[in-house]
Amino acid sequence: MSAILELNGVSKEFAVNGRRTKAVDNVSFAVEKGECLAIVGESGSGKSTIANMILGIYGTTAGTIAFAGEPLPERREKRHRRAIQLVQQNPLSSLNPRRTVGASLRLALDVHEIGPKAERAARIGALLQEVGLEPDYARRSPAALSGGQRQRVAIARALACESELVVLDEPTSALDVLVQARVLRLLAELKAKRGLTYVFITHDLSVVRNIADRVAVFERGRLIEIGTTEALFSSPTQDYTRRLISAVPVVSDEEAAMRQHIMGDQA
C-alpha cells in the first residue's frame, strides 16, 4: 500500500476580528490509495478546513500536503485539479441552476481536454449512465431533478476528469434516508470499479461505520484519534470519540446495547 495523500504538520490560522485563531492545529495523517478515510467531527472541529486545504481552495499556514509522493504547490496545476475532486453537501447549490446538466459535466471535460471534442457528448452520456441516470438527462436543467438525482450528477462531475481522489463533503446529509442509502451504495460501487480514494467528511457516525475503512476524529482543529473503523467503534480510546458514538440516534435495541457498552467502558 502506498499513501496517495499525505498531510504533514499541517496548520491553518484565520484572522477573525484581528485575532488569529487556529482552525487546524499541527495535523498529520496519510490516506492510502483505494481506501475511504472518514474525517469526523462536529462544527469547529476543522474538518471542512482540512477539505479545503486538500482541494487547494486555501493554502496552509504551516506544514505540507503531498499528493502521490509529490508536495502540492500553493497554486495548484491543472493536473492536480484533475486528480483531486469534490462532491459537496448541498446538491441544490452545487449545480448551476442556469446551465444544463450536460453543460455542467462538459466543463470538466473541456478544461482538462479529455477525449476528442466530437466524443465528449457521448462521454457525458456514459458518465450519466455510470451514476444510474439516463443519458438524456444531459439536456435537463437541475431544477427538473430530485435531490438524489442532482447528487448523482455532482458525483458524475467529480468523476468526469478521471479523478483519483474525491473529497466527499457530507455528500448525503441533505438527502432523505432512502435516497441516502442508494447514493452511498453508488459511491461504494464507483470506488471499487474505478479504484478511487475517498476522503469522506461527515458528522454522521452511522454512515461512517458502514462506508469507511479508517476513521480520523477531529476536535477543535486537532486530530485526536485515528484508526480502522472496526477498532475505533469497538474500542475507542478517546472520551470525545465515545461521546460522539453514544450521541448517535439509533433505531434498534442491538445498537442501543452497543452504545451502552461503549459508555460503560469509560468507568
Binding site: Q85, L86, L95, L107, V111, H112
Partner: peptide, 21 residues
C-alpha cells in the same frame, strides 16, 4: 454558491466562471 466552488475545483478559468457561470 456551490457551483462556483465546483468550477474552481475543476480548474475553470476566472473568465469562464464570471461570464459562463
Amino acid at each position: 454558491e456551490g457551483y462556483v466552488l465546483a468550477a474552481e475545483v475543476i480548474g475553470a478559468s476566472k473568465l469562464h466562471i464570471m461570464f459562463r457561470e
